[in-house]
Nucleic acid binder design. Structure first.
Length: 454
RNA sequence: GGCCCCAUCGUCUAACGGUUAGGACGUGGCCCUCUCAAGGCCAAAAUACGGGUUCGAUUCCCGUUGGGGCUACCA
């Protein structure tokens, strides 16, 4: 076994196949790879496994890169493309052939029998198969523990297809050796593949890396995540208004635990806390409600400039953006954001709730108007309120509250009645942030004007 | 079917032979309160089952059941 105490030799890779978009399971694996590399000062390498020309596409590769970037998982090397390294695999296949570890097989696809080994040749056509040796293959997985299997349960698998393209097992092993990968961290769907690959390492005379297989992420119905579960693509979460910080924090805690009760993790904290020992052996069910909670937590705490950066495209999309929001109107815009933070679970919630404050015209919810109109003199009262505000020298929370409470007492109505009326007059709705916040967001001019015209 | 792996509240998980089995999401209640949220407090909620080993099992071993993965000239 190689000595892994020298952390400068830590090299991990994320090796997606561009036959689909980056799904949550892949993202979580990538996150663990990245975390492990960062934790030990190693290298995080990105490799695109596009040896299946039929099913791979460039758009998918682009999408995967985009998703990793969105998640903030920056790579140190790559992306390497297996489709550009075909010679390497052929050479390895040739070496295996020459060493007697492999043979040509002309059986029709799917029709291979062990008898084929007998006529095995080092030349000729067809696919190249690995000659699986007798014996027990065992290895220590860093998360699962000791695993062993009899090699006679493994078929002589294909190394090189008839067309000369390598299959997965050959290309991973060749690349992991060539790229000096020290730790293979990947999904548990690969544990059954590991013995085959170990046999290949041996046949190629290369030292073994450490293996760590992380459990799968299941959909809410406890079956494997798939399109049926709706949003399984990482980018679908961006579209839903999820912020990458939240998604990453949520993902980190799916199948991994720091061993403490801490749940909110900043980047550096997460890197420091991460270890293979904390990875669970059992599959985890994806819990959308918890993701939503994480998102709300982050939306509440994100620094203004980051929040605004995420929000800007959304506002532009909704036709609510104007550059003054970052300049002349910056103060009241930030006031609006503060008011909306605890009321938003997604980025869309900000936009949806911003209309009454950023829109030029106000739409009244008729039910809200009707409810407030039960107080017969509410309009007169609100007009009086407008007059009082007109002469208010200082427009802040304290002075506004003082004016409203004093007026309510004077008019012999409950303060809530006045506030409720003002809410509808100012926002058109029966729900909003605190009424004084609303007034400050709107500013004296708009506040007074809307009260008067109600 | 064969082989491999897994199993604590509904969900994510803590416990690494001795705890009233802890935390979080969600759920219910209360508080706060100008509405809605957020926030605070409280509550209900789990060791799959059966055998061992042990003074003592969530924890170690075996079996059962359940779940997942692999079994392609996919990755």
């Amino acid at each position: 076994m190689k000595n892994m105490t020298d952390t400068s030799s830590i090299r991990v890779r994320f090796a997606p196949s561009p036959t689909g978009y980056l799904h949550v399971g892949g993202a979580r694996t990538a996150l663990f790879d990245w975390l492990f590399a960062r934790r030990y000062g190693g290298a995080f390498i990105l490799r695109i496994e596009d040896t299946d020309v039929e099913r791979s596409s460039e758009e998918m590769t682009t999408g995967i890169l985009e998703a990793l970037t969105w998640l903030g998982l920056n790579w140190d090397e790559g992306p390497y493309y297996q489709s550009k390294r075909l010679d390497l695999y052929k050479q390895a296949g040739q070496r295996l052939l020459e060493g007697g570890h492999a043979y040509y097989c002309a059986c029709p696809a799917g029709g291979h029998t062990i008898a084929c080994r007998e006529q095995a040749s080092r030349e000729g056509g067809g696919a190249v198969r690995f000659r699986v040796p007798q014996g027990t293959v065992s290895f220590k997985d860093d998360v699962i523990g000791e695993i062993s299997i009899e090699s006679d349960t493994i078929e002589d698998f294909v190394l090189l297809r008839s067309d000369g393209h390598p299959t997965y097992h050959l290309s991973v092993v060749v690349d992991d050796i060539d790229m000096r990968i020290s730790h293979v961290i990947r999904g548990t769907d690969h544990v059954s593949n590991t013995p085959k690959q170990i046999l290949l390492y041996r046949a190629l005379g290369a030292p073994l890396p450490a293996f760590a297989h992380v459990p799968l992420i299941l959909g809410p119905d406890k079956t494997r995540m798939s399109k049926r579960h709706g949003a399984t693509s990482v980018m679908a979460y961006q579209e839903q208004g999820i912020v990458p910080e939240a998604f990453r924090n949520f993902l980190a805690l799916l199948g991994w635990s720091p061993g403490t009760d801490q749940e909110m993790f900043g980047d550096d904290e997460l890197i420091q806390a991460f270890s293979l020992q904390g990875i669970s052996k059992a599959n985890a069910v994806f819990n959308p409600e918890k993701l939503s909670w994480f998102n709300a937590q982050y939306l509440a705490k994100l620094p203004d400039h980051k929040l605004i950066a995420y929000l800007k495209p959304e506002f532009i999309n909704a036709g609510l953006w104007r550059d003054t929001l970052e300049n002349e109107e910056a103060d009241r815009f930030k006031l609006l954001l503060e008011a909306l933070r605890p009321r938003s679970k997604t980025l869309h919630d900000f936009v949806r709730q911003s209309r009454p404050y950023l829109g030029t015209t106000l739409e009244y919810d008729q039910a809200a108007v009707a409810k407030v109109s039960k107080e017969p003199q509410i309009r007169e009262h609100l007009h009086t309120l407008a007059d009082r505000l007109q002469s208010l020298p200082d427009f802040n929370h304290q002075t506004l509250e003082a004016v409203i409470r004093a007026l309510a007492e004077e008019l012999a109505v409950k303060p809530g009645t006045l506030m409720g009326g003002a809410r509808v007059a100012l926002t058109g709705l029966s729900v909003s942030p605190g009424i004084f916040e609303v007034m400050m967001i709107l500013g004296p001019e708009t506040t007074i004007q809307r009260l008067r015209t109600f």
